[in-house]
Write a protein that binds this DNA or RNA. Structure first.
Lengths: 254, 254
DNA sequence: TCATGTGAACATGTTCACAGCA
DNA sequence: TGCTGTGAACATGTTCACATGA
């Protein structure tokens, strides 16, 4: 998504491709599971299967980190866990604030995987004064007034936005002004941020729409073969002969 | 993510690039906002700004759908809303089930944007018998036993998994066996599915790790200039002399 | 005149296939 | 012998820059 940097064309050998970075957490998870089962080594084939990618891709990904494998043998699990953790910056402690403690914010706060790997919820922040002081996931919710102080005092550089769409940009601006340089946005809005600030977004609605696109394709291809399952009814019912959509305008300009 | 299809190399002009598909929901959202403000037309420049992309990309994206603009003028808002909705399959009604009604599942069920655009929550399903019958987001939670019947009866083709990681693959298998062909996975696991089934995943932990990677980079670059803000403390604190990590092994083989 | 639509150049990402090393 | 590491081929995605047509 929005990568703030000036995007220099891989100045030295230091540049790990973005696509690779996005897969490192996947490898790390698979490796951690192996580590817990005390498996000493894995082949690229096995690890790739566990991470849900193909082995050529995995080997190429690892080649950007260095030559951490042993030919004819595979990779040392513990060593790889360490190298990937370090590369991802998980040997540091990252305090995180969550802003917007509604249903979703509370769910995120309660999410276990949060604390496990280098991330620590420094504070939960909400604009509703009646939320302030209430315990959520073992923390007391703070009021938005305290946002700047919390970020400063805890050296927070990562913020999670789980507010309604309308409040997101404003919250984002305050986070950035207070020193946050990475934002994970759950609100269904495009955030604008200055250069040097990274934003990643998680959007249920977008994901569903992408799935719907592919579903529709499948339904089309199905028509070539047998109509196996009852296809989802076209809006407004199967029978209707005329324009069925109450939602989608039938406007046709030009 | 996992695109089940055989990936034919754009047989006819029909193939819309995946990257474009992923942006269509963004355009649609921006257009819907314009539509609500009764704006009749937009230029690629304006719409691109609203969607957070550049205008060349937007125009190329739209060119895959057809020539829906007017040279020297721009795009008709209502018309584009309709075309994109249709392309995404949002003129159909998509019944969806959510499996796993914990904190996250409940938050998803309550999420408004769900129902708005063609998606309808057909059922909430949980394995915990004590959850069965409880009202969440205006629906009564069903027990897992009913999963197959619900999917069949409602013609559900899209399933959302919000269970713990351990249960996800099993739930996935049952969904697929019952006829679901698109899955949105919130559980932190790699799901394996047969060909023809699409999986998209949403993973908080992965997103945070990607942000941490870039944060770490920034901290490194910062060292070249002035150490402006106190960098996040290395795990275990600044003082501690011995190995601080209960989590990351300091193993160094070979 | 002005903004769309698009070929061509460029950049990134993936896969193949095999050389090279334990 | 067997698996890693990687150059080279291929595929996808992005940006440029301008011809085109309302």
């Amino acid at each position: 998504m929005a990568t703030g940097r000036t995007h220099r064309p891989a100045t030295r050998s230091r540049g790990i491709p973005e696509a690779t970075v996005a897969r490192l957490p996947l490898y790390l998870r698979a490796l951690t599971a192996l580590s817990e089962r005390s498996v000493p080594t894995v082949s690229s084939e096995e690890l790739a299967a566990a991470a849900g990618v193909n082995s050529a891709k995995l080997r190429k990904d690892f080649s950007y980190l260095g030559s951490y494998g042993t030919r004819g043998v595979g990779y040392d699990v513990e060593y790889l866990v360490y190298q990937i953790s370090r590369e991802l910056g998980l040997t540091q402690d990252w305090p995180v604030v969550i802003v917007g403690i509604g249903n979703l914010g509370a769910a995120l706060a309660n999410y276990g995987g949060f604390a496990s790997r280098g991330f620590r919820v420094a504070a939960l922040i909400d604009a509703d004064p009646s939320m302030a002081g209430k315990p959520v996931a073992g923390l007391r919710v703070k009021h938005t007034d305290e946002l700047e102080a919390i970020i400063e005092d805890n050296g927070v550089s990562i913020g999670v936005i789980a507010t309604p769409a309308g409040a997101a940009q404003q919250v984002c601006d305050r986070l950035v002004a207070a020193g946050v340089t990475s934002i994970l946005n759950f609100a269904p809005t495009v955030l604008s941020v200055p250069d040097g600030v990274d934003v990643r977004k998680v959007d249920l609605s977008i994901e569903l729409q992408i799935l719907a696109f592919h579903e529709q394709r499948k339904a089309g291809e199905e028509a070539l073969a047998a109509p196996a399952r009852p296809a989802p009814a076209v809006r407004g019912g199967t029978a209707g002969g005329k324009g069925p959509d109450g939602d989608v305008p039938a406007v046709m300009p030009a």
